[in-house]
Design a protein around this nucleic acid. Structure first.
Lengths: 135, 135
DNA sequence: CGAAGTTACATGCACATGCATTGGATGTCC
DNA sequence: GGACATCCAATGCATGTGCATGTAACTTCG
């Protein structure tokens, strides 16, 4: 590979890193300050709201998120402790756990979502396109 | 802001998140497996190599990296423990610490750099993918 | 049925990070 | 010069994460 190509890739990586760091930091802080939840918690709530059934198995949730199984387990535990989700047994497969949004969870998400949109709009303004690439 | 605009921003954020997660995870794993250093350590070495003087104050290093002051302090401590950098007093300002690359550090960086380039090339391929390659 | 293997989730542990604080060195203002 | 604010780096502490493991439930094969 040419040096020029390598340099371009490295530059792209640095842009990606810079962009991610800035946005995730701002987002996490805003969510924490305004709603008492972190980015991971918000993402989990978001996935639950997206799900039409609003009741998903841990395993399926994990597939949508960039968290390890253990991290997700604890994230859901925090959400449950906060009363934002509930865990219910799944009769079809009793190893599995259904995670369900509570009313409080739905409300909190609706509020947090506004914060999230605001932060994203501020930092990912539809200016020139940011770093991006295939995974 | 319009719903369409919001959606575009959110989609951009998800792409960014996906891309960052994939690349940083792969990179960290590759560096750790092949060279026994993590991403932060590599970044620190990289900044030191970039610096023409190859001797930078902690504070300056911190400015270039997306790490808190304390995290950088510990990162440098790990690098020092591994013999890859040295800390020397700065006579001009005795609060400051000069971080200097050791010969071992320079070598390790040279090797790790190849790994980094390979991983970045694989995941951030600069090839003109048709339209978008968003994950 | 029953044993071995697999899957889903929780948990012990190690570790990296951020925040707040500390300790020491500089700078400033009187 | 002396008191006070500021700055640099290190560290105590709380927290979130991943890996390895534990436990229970499901599956497969004999």
């Amino acid at each position: 590979m040419s040096d020029a190509g390598e340099e371009a890739v490295v530059r792209r990586w640095r842009d990606l890193l810079a962009c991610y760091s800035t946005v995730s930091c701002a987002l996490d802080r805003a969510l924490q300050d305004a709603h008492g939840i972190g980015m991971s918690e918000f993402e989990a709530l978001d996935r639950l709201v997206d799900a039409t059934c609003e009741q998903r198995r841990m395993h399926d949730l994990a597939g949508d998120m960039y968290l390890s199984q253990s991290a997700l387990s604890r994230t859901v535990a925090r959400l449950e402790r906060a009363g934002l989700v509930g865990r219910t047994m799944c009769d079809d497969d009793r190893r599995a756990i259904f995670v369900t949004l509570t009313e409080a969870g739905r409300e909190r998400h609706a509020q947090a979502r506004r914060t999230q949109r605001a932060v994203l709009a501020e930092h990912l303004a539809p200016e020139p396109e940011p770093a991006r690439a295939g995974a």
